[in-house]
């Protein structure tokens, strides 16, 4: 039983990360009907930016060249010891890292949209797809050459330390760590906030309108360009947060780290019904659980085969995904 629960915890954590990335795929698809293949690189950029912020804010980064040239270094020093010294400081630092990453990656997403997708908005649908692949390769190589192919990402010990859940004095050792709780909680909270934002606010309404018909939305006085730009801020920002989580959770960042999670999360978005936020979340958690449980009970070597066979079976019976409605193509 413990073994099963521990594997559930593994799967839910993995699923939380997939869900966060899948939200980005699904948002962009919902508004533009375009698959943003550069999204996996938003995830990777988020991890690199998160690592950079960590090095800047923690004592681990004293050797860093950027820190040395900062004029307000002495102020930084006291700030750093606060961040690495106490649990509260660590939590605040982690929140700052997440925020910096989300904002910068969001901006990167907007830049990508402005320069790589907007000029192609009225081009045939394959053009922005190829453009997205180009952006993906460009970003991978930029980070590879600019920083390093891979770097260790070590959060200070307090955040990563294992909190063992005790029930009636017995050590269950399910491997529930603060970081895992943060990952799952963040993705669930962000989904709820996003869902409310799109359903209840004026901007959310504008987004829904744009997704239904861009031209009609423009005629109603909605600034389509800024709505799309906002979509390209939120989606990548979520990917960036997932990137920081992945870096902190696995303890490493790699220039091509986005590839596999990107494909899996895209799969998750499709399983859930692409374009549907709750579907992306459901798909993400499902995929994480399937992956972890198939490794636990069937075979670690065949986990990807099993995962994708299940995907195919789901799509055969529900071509629109679990929560998606199969929309008839309007001609």
């Amino acid at each position: 039983m413990n073994y099963f629960l521990a594997q559930l915890v593994n799967g839910i954590t993995l699923g939380g990360m997939y869900a966060l990335i899948a939200l980005g795929y699904t948002m962009v698809y919902g508004v533009l009907l375009m698959i943003n293949f550069a999204h996996s690189e938003m995830f990777m950029s988020g991890a690199y930016i998160g690592l950079g912020t960590l090095l800047l804010l923690s004592n681990a980064g004293t050797q860093n060249a950027i820190c040395k040239v900062l004029p307000f270094l002495s102020f930084f020093k006291s700030l750093r010891s606060f961040f690495t010294g106490s649990t509260v400081g660590l939590i605040i630092m982690f929140i700052i890292i997440l925020a910096v990453s989300a904002v910068l990656v969001g901006c990167l997403g907007m830049l990508t949209e402005r320069f790589a997708y907007r000029p192609l908005r009225h081009a045939p649908r394959l053009a922005p797809l190829i453009s997205a692949l180009g952006v993906s390769i460009f970003l991978q190589n930029a980070f590879l050459l600019w920083i390093a192919p891979n770097k260790p990402f070590n959060l200070p010990a307090v955040v990563a330390k294992a909190a063992i859940v005790d029930l009636s004095g017995k050590n269950l050792s399910l491997g529930i760590t603060p970081l895992r709780i943060i990952i799952v909680a963040t993705s669930v909270i962000l989904l709820i906030v996003l869902d409310l934002f799109i359903a209840r606010t004026r901007v959310g309404k504008a987004m829904r309108a744009t997704s239904q018909d861009q031209d009609a939305a423009g005629l109603m006085g909605i600034n389509v360009n800024s709505v799309i730009a906002l979509t390209f801020f939120i989606g990548p920002a979520l990917g960036g947060i997932a990137g920081v989580f992945s870096g902190a959770y696995y303890g490493t960042v790699t220039y091509n780290m986005g590839f596999m999670p990107g494909i899996k999360s895209f799969t998750a978005a499709v399983i859930g019904g692409i374009g549907n936020l709750r579907g992306a979340m459901l798909g993400g958690f499902m995929l994480g659980l399937i992956e972890s449980l198939s490794q636990a009970y069937i075979s670690a070597s065949y986990k990807d085969v099993i995962t994708f066979v299940i995907l195919i079976v789901i799509l055969i019976f529900r071509p629109g995904g679990l929560l998606g409605s199969s929309v008839v193509e309007k001609v």
Partner: peptide, 20 residues
């Protein structure tokens, strides 16, 4: 005995199995 994949970064399921 198990095989993992190239570029895999999540080994938690395998690790839990080994721990058991």
């Amino acid at each position: 005995q198990a095989s993992t994949q190239q570029k895999q970064n999540d080994f938690t399921a395998v690790v839990t199995k080994i721990a058991s």
